[in-house]
Design a protein around this nucleic acid. Sequence first.
DNA 1: CGGCATCCACCTAGATACTG
DNA 2: CAGTATCTAGGTGGATGCCG
Lengths: 137, 137
Amino acid sequence: MDTGFDLREHGGVDVFLRDCPTRAVLELIAGKWTMLVLVALEDGRPMRFAELRRRLDGVTAKVLTGTLRALEREGLLTRAVYPTVPPRVEYRLTALGREVGGLLQGITDWAQANVAAVVAAREEFDERAARPPAAVE
Amino acid sequence: MDTGFDLREHGGVDVFLRDCPTRAVLELIAGKWTMLVLVALEDGRPMRFAELRRRLDGVTAKVLTGTLRALEREGLLTRAVYPTVPPRVEYRLTALGREVGGLLQGITDWAQANVAAVVAAREEFDERAARPPAAVE
DNA sequence: CGGCATCCACCTAGATACTG
DNA sequence: CAGTATCTAGGTGGATGCCG
């Protein structure tokens, strides 16, 4: 899939540029479940499909499969199939994946630490919007 | 908007739980343009609407507006309107926003540094998938 | 157990046109 | 300049059912 974007023509890469492949990387992370998968596996311990499914409260099998495939494709995790019966499939991060996982964990940690402030800001914003714009300063 | 989720019932918060408000924070970041807005403003310098629009190659006015509103609502940035003519609107991150911005810059930096490895992994994966599954070793 | 196939509802983002 | 209004297409995610 050639996007017509040549790195060498750009003296480096820039996430802000529309056709730069880094955009694809960002959009991958932007997936609704990607961040949670990466954080769940971040400690290096491999996890089975069902285990991930349980951990990511609310994810469906289809979507989890898709997310895992996408991450495997980008080289962020590996999928190991043990042809036992019943089948056993383990997912674990690659070195590359562990790097992003660490960064993303920073984000989730921040979210957990600051959720109260965010919720408060949201409520204040909504209240402000609901009130009739009384006086203009 | 009460989701029925009470922080006090959960001895803390957990991004992995379905109705935890931290999920909303994560999904905000998951927006296609959110990350770029936050990183663009991360250095603290305020930017005008048109300036952001130019920086985020490919974004439309409508979507940028929506993204900025959402971030303002969560308390991550402020919107200052100067009633001059022509109008002048400046966006800048709040303290909270600067924190996330910094973390997200880590992600974009990583993406820019490792895009080659990711693209390579992707190509190898696709090639593997295209080939007839020769031997089942 | 760990999927894949199918169908569907939503919603986001994009294009376009118009306004204070 | 900095939006808003409207319409639409495509994709993402969700529910269900079947298979190796």
